[in-house]
Computed example of a mutant assay.
Amino acid sequence: MEAAIERIMQTYDLLLNCSAAASDEARAKVTAYLTTLVEAGEKDPHRLTVCGLTYLRQLDGSNDPVKAGYTGL
């Protein structure tokens, strides 16, 4: 799990140029989320990485299709 968290944070920090405090907060949130996934039985580090990145992107709103300009028309 630690390797997945490190990969998530490296990638997330590249995507968002955030402060150290924001990065620490994101790390705490993604660690709690991944702990839940591991306890539920997920063991694949690649899948954990993708799930963790998706989770952080949803939290910060950067995964919002409306903000990205997709209206469905």
Results as ranks from 00 to 15, higher is better:
1 M>W: 00
2 E>P: 02
3 A>E: 04
3 A>K: 12
4 A>V: 00
5 I>T: 09
6 E>S: 13
7 R>N: 15
7 R>Q: 11
8 I>F: 04
8 I>T: 06
8 I>Q: 07
9 M>D: 06
9 M>L: 15
10 Q>Y: 08
10 Q>M: 14
10 Q>A: 15
12 Y>I: 10
12 Y>N: 05
12 Y>W: 14
13 D>Q: 09
13 D>A: 15
13 D>T: 09
14 L>E: 12
15 L>F: 05
15 L>I: 06
16 L>E: 10
16 L>T: 03
17 N>C: 09
17 N>G: 13
18 C>T: 12
20 A>H: 11
21 A>K: 12
22 A>K: 15
24 D>Y: 10
25 E>A: 15
26 A>N: 08
27 R>I: 06
27 R>M: 11
27 R>N: 08
28 A>L: 12
28 A>H: 03
28 A>M: 07
28 A>Y: 06
28 A>N: 12
29 K>S: 04
29 K>V: 01
30 V>R: 06
30 V>M: 07
30 V>T: 13
30 V>I: 07
31 T>C: 01
31 T>A: 07
31 T>N: 08
31 T>Y: 07
31 T>W: 00
32 A>H: 06
32 A>K: 08
32 A>Q: 09
32 A>P: 00
34 L>I: 14
34 L>F: 02
34 L>R: 01
34 L>E: 03
35 T>L: 09
35 T>M: 08
35 T>A: 12
35 T>K: 12
35 T>Q: 15
35 T>G: 11
36 T>F: 02
36 T>C: 00
36 T>I: 10
36 T>P: 00
37 L>S: 07
37 L>W: 05
38 V>W: 08
38 V>Y: 08
39 E>K: 14
39 E>V: 10
39 E>Q: 13
40 A>L: 04
41 G>H: 13
41 G>M: 05
41 G>K: 06
41 G>R: 02
42 E>V: 15
42 E>S: 03
42 E>H: 11
42 E>T: 14
42 E>C: 05
43 K>G: 03
44 D>H: 04
44 D>F: 01
45 P>E: 08
45 P>L: 02
47 R>T: 04
47 R>G: 07
47 R>L: 11
47 R>D: 12
49 T>Y: 13
49 T>D: 02
50 V>D: 02
50 V>Y: 06
51 C>R: 05
51 C>H: 10
51 C>D: 07
52 G>C: 03
52 G>Q: 03
53 L>H: 02
54 T>D: 08
55 Y>I: 06
55 Y>F: 15
55 Y>L: 03
56 L>W: 01
56 L>I: 05
56 L>Q: 06
57 R>L: 14
57 R>F: 03
57 R>A: 10
59 L>M: 14
59 L>E: 13
60 D>R: 13
61 G>Q: 01
61 G>S: 02
61 G>D: 04
62 S>W: 00
63 N>C: 01
63 N>V: 00
64 D>W: 03
64 D>Q: 10
65 P>F: 04
66 V>K: 14
66 V>E: 09
66 V>P: 01
66 V>D: 11
67 K>C: 01
68 A>S: 08
68 A>D: 10
68 A>Q: 14
70 Y>P: 06
70 Y>K: 15
70 Y>F: 15
70 Y>S: 14
70 Y>T: 13
71 T>K: 04
72 G>T: 14
73 L>G: 10
